[in-house]
């Protein structure tokens, strides 16, 4: 079975993460119900005429994907795999509202055409004229993880050598407000703003110098806290890792009642520095791809930006990082990285 490495990582997020050589140097305080991403200058990546027709997720996705390929010095990937929780919700809402307000008359096809969940993956393929394997996962908080798992499978089984994989979600204008409304009704609901973003990666089966290895990953649809602990033990055991070898734990805490899952995972790793990120990225179904981007940067730079620190256990060298994410007590994922 081939090993899997991360060759490049690019993120567009609520923070200044795209047009910068720095790593979360200036933090934008995000608060409120919803926060838009810090949009880059799309002109550098997408022709103006094309960009005008594209919704936010497509623009963010195509741009992050282009830069991820550029950073990995890759022209044509052997596969393009995308994850998105809400898909192209902007165009979906637009078409839906046109149907409602015009009583099914005078509709134009463009928002319908661009409302399908695979639009981002398709537009990336079109832009690259890439006829290779192409797939889109739309499974809530496991959308990105499913895409990454597929990429891992392709590389391990030698069905490709370089895979472009990413997670992308846009806020939209309407349904997100209803989701927020329901969330805020519950005092132990999600405590960070809802947001959006796109994080793309090139993963490959060819080790380069100072490569970062995606050692393994695992997803689980539903689990009690006890079952989750069992799963975590099993995951570490299978990868021959002792808890003390984990230097950094990155948890997807969002302040809701289900953070107890992170507490229970955290109790395994007393010596590890624990990080959180959703207070910086906001919460959305593919927010965990921002977490993976941060992990990649930390391993690469051997530096942890202060705002990420949840529990500090100063470590001199950072070699092994475990990411754990879940949403409302379901859709659990572990990702293990090694320098």
């Amino acid at each position: 079975m081939k090993k899997v490495f991360i060759d490049s990582a690019v993120s567009i997020s609520a923070q200044n993460t795209f047009d910068t050589y720095g790593f979360l140097e200036e933090i934008k305080d995000i608060s409120g119900k919803t926060v838009s991403a810090n949009y880059p200058n799309y002109r550098d990546y997408i022709a103006l005429a094309a960009s005008r027709r594209m919704a936010t997720a497509v623009k963010m996705g195509v741009t992050a994907a282009s830069k991820a390929l550029e950073k990995a010095n890759l022209k044509q990937p052997d596969a393009i795999i995308t994850g998105t929780g809400m898909g192209c919700i902007e165009d979906t809402e637009k078409f839906l509202n046109n149907i409602i307000s015009n009583e099914e008359a005078f509709l134009t096809p463009t928002p319908f055409i661009q409302s399908t969940h695979n639009t981002v993956g398709a537009q990336i393929a079109l832009g690259l004229n890439c006829k290779a394997y192409n797939n889109t996962y739309v499974h809530a908080a496991l959308s990105f993880e499913s895409a990454l798992l597929d990429a891992q499978l392709l590389l391990q089984q030698d069905e490709g050598k370089h895979v472009l994989v990413g997670g992308v979600d846009e806020l939209g204008k309407e349904i997100i407000n209803y989701v927020r409304l329901m969330e805020d009704r519950d005092s132990s609901g999600i405590q960070v703003p809802f947001s959006e973003g796109a994080s793309f990666f090139v993963v490959s089966s060819e080790a380069k110098e100072a490569a970062i290895q995606l050692v393994d990953m695992e997803v689980c649809s539903t689990a009690s806290e006890e079952k989750l602990q069992e799963n975590l033990k099993g995951f570490l055991l299978r990868n021959k890792i002792e808890p003390f070898q984990i230097d950094v734990l990155i948890a997807g805490r969002n302040g809701d009642a289900f953070d107890v899952y992170y507490d229970s995972a955290s109790s395994f790793f007393e010596n590890a520095t624990e990080l959180h990120y959703k207070h910086l990225s906001g919460e959305f179904y593919t927010a965990s791809s921002f977490g993976l981007w941060a992990a990649y940067e930390i391993l690469n730079r051997q530096e942890i930006p202060k705002p990420l620190i949840y529990k500090d256990e100063s470590t001199s060298e950072i070699n092994t990082i475990l990411l754990y994410n879940q949403f409302k007590g379901r859709d659990h994922s572990f990702i293990l990285l090694k320098r």
Binding site: G87, H117, N134, N135, V138, A140, S146, V219, T222
Partner: peptide, 20 residues
Amino acid sequence: TQKIADAIGITEFVTTISTA
């Protein structure tokens, strides 16, 4: 997908694909 998986007792690997 989540609802069906829960109802038929599949708890580990569950995912959804959408390529039109």
